[in-house]
Amino acid sequence: MTNSDSYPTGLGSSDERTISLLGQSLAEDMMGRVGFGELALWMLNQRRPNASEVRIFEAVLVALADHGFTPTAIVSRLTLLSAPDSIQGAMAAGLLGGGSRFLGVTEDTGRFLHRALVQAPLHPTTENEWDEIALRLIQDAKRDKLYIPGLGHPVHKEVDPRTPVLMDLCREEGLYGDHLSLFAAIGRVHAPVLGRQLPLNGAGVCGAALCDLGIPVEVLRGVSLLARSAGLLGQIAEELRNPIGMDIYLHVEHGARYEPSPFQADQPFESKD
């Protein structure tokens, strides 16, 4: 094989007798010795994380794994109802719903904070300096009629219980970096500008924490989907044991009523006979 026929990778490869992953023997060095969260972070950054980094990363995975009967969970259960022979279809249906309202907020917040830090003229060193940058961001967003990702939650109106816990964990582990500092500042200064106090949501704080772990913003949503995969698998397993998908379907079906749209009302049916 020539160099032009090779495909370099720092991840994994295998031959007839061995499987290598991240430069280690998968069977001899990793199985039973490396946890899944550690492995995922190791593969993302292609360097072995320390114990503090693993603790924060796994806390993020736990925080994002499941949030009850969200649209992603419901669609997975209904897909399983429709195609009980397709576990992969049910999983995929839930993952495809990871967007700007659910799951995608982690990526959106990380991108927002990262962009603001890159554009900041100076690196803040005090809480007041962080507050000044955050205040400008909020004022600009209000002027441009843009929302601040990670600010507010449809259920947790006062405090998202995940946010203070993850922030405290990051402080304990010495991993409270610039992204979390800016996110916390947004929480402190937004109310006078927006006219109301909103909570910093858990998905947003996860995005900030992941950025402080050095994870590229381009793959942040992938981390959310990795976490939610566990939640969706749990939803599917419960649906198999104690199904509610048919009840959800019938509830919506029995509540449906026909209302002609304005377009239909203006276009009476004409026989072609």
Results as ranks from 00 to 15, higher is better:
G97Y: 11
F183W: 03
H190A: 03
S271N: 09
L113D: 00
I138E: 00
M167E: 14
A230R: 10
L41A: 01
V155H: 10
A227Y: 03
L78Y: 12
N3Y: 15
Y249F: 11
M31R: 08
I248L: 09
E218V: 01
L194C: 04
F269V: 11
A230I: 08
L113K: 00
M246W: 12
S181G: 14
V219N: 00
V118H: 10
L61Q: 05
L220V: 04
S4N: 12
G202L: 05
P216M: 06
M1F: 15
K272V: 09
V159S: 08
M91F: 07
P268C: 03
S82E: 15
A184D: 10
L96D: 13
E132P: 08
L166W: 05
A209M: 01
T125K: 15
S100K: 10
D15W: 13
S86G: 13
L81E: 12
W42S: 00
M31H: 11
A237D: 10
S20I: 07
P199R: 03
M246Q: 06
G94F: 06
P8F: 08
P192D: 03
G37P: 01
T18P: 09
D144T: 09
L103F: 10
N128Y: 15
G104H: 04
L95Y: 14
G10D: 05
V60E: 02
